[in-house]
Design a binder for these strands. Structure first.
Lengths: 333, 333
DNA sequence: AAAATTCAGTAAAACGCTTGCATTGCCTTT
DNA sequence: AAAGGCAATGCAAGCGTTTTACTGAATTTT
């Protein structure tokens, strides 16, 4: 018994109506007499008909699918965003094609290209840098794009973020306030605007307000990994830092463990504020004080924004900035 | 200047060949004279032509897209599998539609249905239970399916796992060996075969070999969350357990922190072995001894298996079992 | 009661591509 | 030199929908 794909045509024949009518009932078009609708629905049920989304996509030029480019699903920061994205997508009947990029420009471009070939209705991009080649791909198509947890200094496309300048300024301020003379800043590459422009700016502003001189040797560029953090602590000690602001939670946990492993007391002898408030921050002892970014919400809002764009609705502001907090826990005094 | 979608037809016209020929060069069909190929390629380049994958999918009945159903991307266990899946998928030119199910049967069924409507070429399913309704959806279509890190006791579909019985037996054995009289088992719901059938079986086997009586009060069903673990530790103390095997790493971290918070020494007064060896296990102090499942590989192998199925290649064994280890760290003596 | 309007439904043309089959040259064979 | 074979290409029929334009019938308006 070969399984025969059954089409809209079969349904039409069985129900004694035209394909168009079947299409209307499937799509909830009101121009169908209730009796007809019922009849068609019965046939659909009986035949176990399931509309072919590919054919639909070709005819309607809509795939109800959005592409999501993520550096690494395995990183809690991004997976939290992704979860928010998916939930809202589902809510609006979209599906998500998820692609890992490792922040590798070549992969990003190539994956972007195949997503566009697949005719996604929209794109959500995560990653710390928006290179020119990516930007070029974006503008090459008219597919709407939203950045989630990522910054476009030029504000060409939509984006959802928190105010990184203010957040880091506040965190630095707190660390300075509690008596630290040498507060280090450990982020990813400074070539990424979020680090080199925003976080660094907030950091400097706080120093300035406290009349503390800026010392470049307190700035560290790292991979956002536990191992990197572990190794970093030694360097922090070497430059005489007594506190650090970490741009990534895994990194922060690494720093914490690095300190603990050397018998350094946190927060008594060393303070840490991290940036993403992922689950990790609660799991350590002491727990990590963190900038509280609403990760899930950033993803959710980004996707919501994208739905509006795909719908060609009026957008009041395509760069949205969500609020943040500093969540005090055990890694600061 | 409206952006006009440019089609294979435009390329054909500009290159003075038929659509068929263009299609052939795009698809790498060898039956094209090098000179013609070159000419077509040039036009493609000049016109910036990008084949429409939806149309392709309709015509060829292949979408080069696979559906991935995951309980929650935010859970490291699953995101690690997902990463393996995506990498191999990319390697074989597939994309992944990722959908979170929360292990909720209704969501699973509904998402499965929309994935099939989207004509995915294959499916990877993660989740601890394969309900009848899901199984029914599976067999309703002829789309190949592989379970990753999940068990189908009936072996109807492909699956990639480790030998959970042996793993838990070994873990239990070690805990018994080091002098624990009362070893607890903390997993998710026992209605899930992986827990109720496999892990429990391994646990019992170890007890039996050590001539220790089985005591039901040492078995705990929990959510795989940090909070649940935190709360669980009290209960473990109450029943006099001095060691536990946790089915989930977040749960294990919770238990560990629960112990630490009460001043109980790990591993001296309480031992813990967890199950998934995610990054988390390295981040705690002490670090967690764990069953070492090759998470990434499970995903990768599952996807590889799926590619074979989609290719209709001969499959030697559709239930594959990967090796495991017990990685000794600080949470056991 | 004729005209205008709305409602239900039909037919058929896209949508952009793949692919089986047919065709055309151009070489080899004999 | 006729016949056969093969490589390269073209033709056109799908693939399963949506959607536009249209038609009749039913209903309302005047």
């Amino acid at each position: 018994m070969e399984k025969q794909t059954i089409t809209i045509y079969d349904v039409a024949r069985e129900a004694n109506v035209s394909m168009a009518t079947v299409s209307r009932v499937v799509n909830g078009n009101p121009n169908v007499k209730p009796a007809t609708r019922k009849k068609v629905l019965e046939v659909i049920e009986r035949l176990d008909y399931r509309p072919n989304a590919v054919a639909r996509g070709l005819a309607s030029k809509k795939t109800t699918t959005v592409g999501v480019i993520i550096p690494d699903v395995t990183n809690m920061f991004f997976s939290s965003l992704a979860r928010g994205i998916d939930d809202v997508a589902t809510m609006y009947k979209y599906n998500i094609i998820l692609a890992n990029s490792d922040e590798n420009n070549q992969k990003e471009v190539s994956v972007l290209s195949t997503l566009l070939a697949k005719q996604v209705d929209g794109l959500i991009f995560m990653g710390h840098e928006l290179t020119d080649s990516i930007r070029a791909e974006f503008s090459r198509s008219k597919t709407p794009v939203v950045l989630a947890g990522s910054i476009d200094p030029d504000e060409q496309v939509g984006s959802v973020n928190i105010d990184y300048v203010a957040a880091v300024e506040e965190a630095t301020h707190q660390l300075l306030e509690s008596g630290n003379k040498r507060v280090a800043l450990a982020t990813g590459s400074l070539t990424h605007p979020i680090n080199g422009q925003f976080r660094l700016k907030g950091y400097k502003q706080a120093l300035e307000k406290a009349s503390v001189a800026y010392d470049e040797s307190l700035i560290f560029e790292n991979e956002p990994s536990y191992q990197a953090g572990l190794a970093l602590f030694g360097k922090l000690q070497k430059v005489g830092a007594t506190a650090v602001i970490a741009g990534d939670d895994e990194l922060a946990v690494g720093i914490l463990d690095g300190a603990l492993d050397k018998g350094v007391k946190v927060p008594d002898d060393f303070e840490i504020i991290t940036s993403n408030n992922t689950k990790l921050t609660e799991m350590t002892r002491p727990q990590l004080t963190s900038i509280d970014q609403p990760l899930y919400d950033i993803g959710a809002v980004a996707m919501r924004l994208l739905t509006k764009m795909m719908n060609k609705e009026e957008i009041e502001e395509k760069t949205v900035m969500l609020g943040f907090d500093i969540l005090k826990r055990g890694s600061t005094k």
